[in-house]
Each structure stands twice: as structure tokens, then as C-alpha cells.
Amino acid sequence: MSFLDLKNVTKIYPNGTKAVHETSLSIDEGEFMVFVGPSGCGKSTLLRMVAGLEDITEGDINLDGKLMNEVDPSERDVAMVFQNYALYPHMNVYNNLAYGLKNRGIDKETIEQKVNDAAKLLQISDYLQRKPSMLSGGQRQRVAMGRAIVRNPKIFLFDEPLSNLDAKLRIQMRLEIKKLQQKVGVTSIFVTHDQVEAMTLADRLAVINNGIIEQLGTPIEIYDNPKSLFVAGFIGSPQMNFLDGNLKNKTLSAEGFEIKDINSDFEGEVTLGIRPEHLSQSENGLISLRVELVEQLGSDNLVYGQLKNKKDFCYRCPGNQTIEKGSNLSLNIDNNKYYIFDKSTGKRVN
């Protein structure tokens, strides 16, 4: 049995909404797991069930070999960082960090020692006497993490902790969280709807949709080998291009072009997925793109346009290429890096 084990965990709210469907998942000690999915997909509910803030309708949660289903949140030895930090507004930073320790009946000197260590680690030693209202967003974020670290819990839970920060700070804090987790080595679950956050932070990633884990794996596995249409569309930025097509006798006829010798026996209506970065310009390419807009990011250009059949399409090329608005590009798919999905079920077929 691994460190944290979810077995057929289901959550049905009293009003009948089924938020999580029979989810099973194992997380190893020290692992950084990220739950990613669109809002309302059940990822936060799953996290809150681990924390004990939501009842488990069906299934079991085991942490460190102990069944947690009926254990009170305060007894689970988990720490959580909330989206809006949930710092205690009337306590200064020191007491925010010390509160959980005090409740555990730890003596004063030890508390002081632990709080000071955590504060040093997070570089908040200078603010220990301040109230949360006197801190900036990034500092509050650190205090919230300090409150989790100081208790030395079995598991850290992060519920979209970066979504209240501005873009620059978010990237900085993302790095800090990752570094910190590596330094402290605590098992962590991080919930986010931001796929970039998910990719950069995760040891393993669980892509969740409609209360079901669509795919579980390392970020690169999921990026390289999405198993469903949803995962393919969700992971990767800019989003994968999707084209309608038909698969018959190992030949895919999409809108205006054909791909032969496809490694699949599936026959019928399919969706072809091509990542914008898996395309390159070549003469007599498969795809002809009429450029409407070019976003120059410096390192890359994002080229947006339409295919012959007015379908929107995106192409990513190195930033040193000059692409004129209104021009026509001829594109080829790199090394057979395309994905074919059954149109009716969304399952990968190649």
C-alpha cells in the first residue's frame, strides 16, 4: 500500500450532484501530485475529502496505513493552503503559525523554535509581528505555507493557492513552492485549473473531468500521449488544433488532406488533433493556413488563421521567422505527431 490511497472514492452532495465518481489513486511518500481540470470538475472536492472537510459518500481513503474516512480533520495530520489563504486576520504572523502547534499542546520553546525555523525558510522572519492585513499578496502566501510547514504534517494540500496572485508573482511563487517541496520532501497534492502550473509543479499529474480522472501520469507522458480528446485539449498551450475527419482502411481523410498508413484499425468518424508546435512550414504541405493574426512572444510566434474550410487553426513557429498577416502558409505535421480520437467517445484510437 502506498502512502496515500484513494479507493473508489465517490462524493454525492445532498442535492444529488455527483461531484466525484469512484476515483482510485495512489500517491507515494514525497510525491508532488497535481489535480488539474476545469472549474467544477470535482478536483477541489477530492482534495477536501482528503483533508476531511467533506464527507466521503463511498469508498476509502487511507493515509500512512490508516483508514481516514471517519477521522476528524484536526486528527488527520494534514495541512492545507487555501485559495484565499484563510489567514487568521486577528492574529499576527507568529500566532498564525503557532496556533496549530498550541492546539497540539506543544511547549512554548519548541513552538518558538519551529515558528522561527519555518519563518527563516520562507523569509518571513521580519514580518512575524505583523497582522495579515499589513502584508502583500506574496507575503500572505508565504505565511499560509508557513502555517502548513510548521506543523510538519504528513501531507500538504494546496487548493489553487496561486490564483489570487498577479502573473509575475504567480510564476515566482510556483518556483518557490516546488523548491520548498523538494527541500522539505513532504507529500503534496496541488489543485489547479492552470495547466502550466500543473505541468511545471507535478511529479505526477491527474487530469480530472466531470468527477473522473481522465488520465494519470507524469506531465510529459500526458503531453506526449494524451489518452482522450479532453486531456489533449486541456494540456498544452496554445490549445491543440482539432479537425474533423474520417478513418477508413488506415487512411484518414480530414478536411482537404489525407494521411495514409495510420496505425489503427478504427473505422468511422474521428477527430484529428495536432499541436501548434508540431507543425513546420514546407512546400506542398498537407495543411494550408491563411494567416489572420500573429502574436510575437519573442522566443516564439503564435500564428492564428483559418484553413480553407474557415476552421480556426494555430501554428507555433520560432520567433525569428517573419510571417506576414494575410499570407498563406503551407504546413506539414512533424514526425507523425498527430493524435486521432474517436469522435463519439473521445477516446484515442491511434
Binding site: S74, F82, N84, H90, Y99, R147
Partner: peptide, 27 residues
């Protein structure tokens, strides 16, 4: 008072009485 405050306090080991005394009264 946001629910997260209660949840956070719960995870920090506060019980019904201590949440009242440590949080609601000072707030």
C-alpha cells in the same frame, strides 16, 4: 466570516469551543 477560516482552524486542531473563543470572539 469566510468558511475557509473555520476549515483552516479545524485543520489546525481547533474544536467547536476554541473556534468560538479564539476566532469569533476576537473578530
Amino acid at each position: 466570516i469566510p468558511d475557509e477560516l473555520l476549515e483552516s482552524a479545524k485543520l489546525d486542531g481547533a474544536n467547536g469551543w476554541s473556534f468560538f473563543i479564539d476566532f469569533l470572539v476576537p473578530l
